[in-house]
Design a protein around this nucleic acid. Structure first.
Lengths: 200, 200
DNA sequence: AACGTTTACAGACACAATGTTTTGTATCTT
DNA sequence: AAGATACAAAACATTGTGTCTGTAAACGTT
């Protein structure tokens, strides 16, 4: 009782068509018929699989997240948590492999809901690691934990987005990771080449 | 030849109605009629002012940005640029004053287009300041400038968003600025209470 | 290879939202 | 007060939505 091949085919076709078309025209400009036409699928068939275009988009996004989680598992469970760079490296690679889908999600199409899912997922993972580290080493953060987590995740998303929008990689993924490790270590002034801030 | 009062009234009413309704139901779930009903304006009148709901939303967003730019001007032109914290402080205050509108924009409603406007605006300002500093002090950033700018802006947006979503301020705006200055100075490990990263 | 089952297709349907137009009325500016 | 302008109300064609048919093809199973 394995999944029907026709089902797989049409679902895939609809998902790809959605991503293509969102990149071309933007999510809100699309009709269900646009999608089915591109995918070469009858409109009625679309509704046999999805409630509407939001539903389709949501599934595309969750599929992406599941795939990412799967690829991230060894990197996360391996190290004793913290910002080792391994998870980020794996993420960058995943983005390279699924560039179009990431672009669509990270651009915040679909009223930012799929992106929200992504952010929440990252935030949850971050908060968890964060707490674990704090407990393990029994230290108190010098900056409000909630605020710090937001900054952390916002930074990661910004990097992924930048990475996704590149047509041709401006530098190897390992280089990006190295830079961000340095940034996390030394702070932004160091990174920008300065040693002292303007205080006024 | 000042602007007609009726025009101002209806435009305001429609803008407020949009923000209210987006917070309640989300942008994509709204119809033009929903908005006109809430604003107590005839549907035909709506189209006399705006091309559609996207257009209305775009104007609400640009109005917000203009207002922000106006409030930011003294803070930016006053200091010789750099991360002084003054602009950020002013931004946080503006968010407090226009919380609802900021929520709507920063959540990425409307396929993230208004948010994109916001990000681009911040990125442009950041890049400009960044370049000016580098030239003034004739130093080379240790991290790719483009990447650093993204991280920078991503961080700011994350903070603003966190700030906007608070119902009751968890700390004074000045405190937030202080934390972020510290973060920019010393890096993330310092902020989280650690001194050395996990390297593996 | 033939079976019963599942899925896709094409077309038709009522319904909802869009965007435009018209005409009369109320409210502005000067 | 007078002329201009914006608004309300209603009707309109158009487009997209979501659902439902009967029929044909592809599927997994045995």
């Amino acid at each position: 009782m394995a999944e029907d091949r026709r089902t797989r085919r049409t679902r895939r076709a609809l998902g790809s068509a959605l991503v293509e078309l969102v990149l071309e025209r933007g999510f809100s400009a699309l009709t269900v018929e646009d999608i089915t036409e591109r995918a070469d699928v009858a409109r009625a068939t679309f509704y046999a699989h999805f409630k509407g275009k939001d539903d389709l988009f949501a599934r595309v996004a969750t599929d992406l997240l599941e795939q990412l989680a799967q690829r991230l598992e060894p990197a996360v469970s391996g190290s004793a948590v913290g910002f080792t760079g391994k998870p980020l490296l794996e993420m960058l690679r995943h983005v390279s492999d699924e560039r179009d889908t990431y672009r669509v999600v990270l651009r915040g199409e679909g009223d930012g809901k799929p992106l929200q899912m992504f952010v929440d997922s990252c935030a949850a993972a971050t908060a968890q690691e964060f707490k674990a580290r704090a407990e393990r080493n029994s230290v108190q953060p010098r900056i409000d934990a909630d605020l710090l987590a937001r900054v952390w995740v916002g930074e990661q998303i910004a990097v992924l987005r930048w990475w996704a929008e590149q047509d041709t990689p401006p530098m190897p993924a390992e280089e990006v990771v190295r830079m961000l490790l340095d940034l996390a270590l030394h702070g932004r002034y160091w990174a920008s080449g300065f040693t002292a801030p303007d205080q006024d």
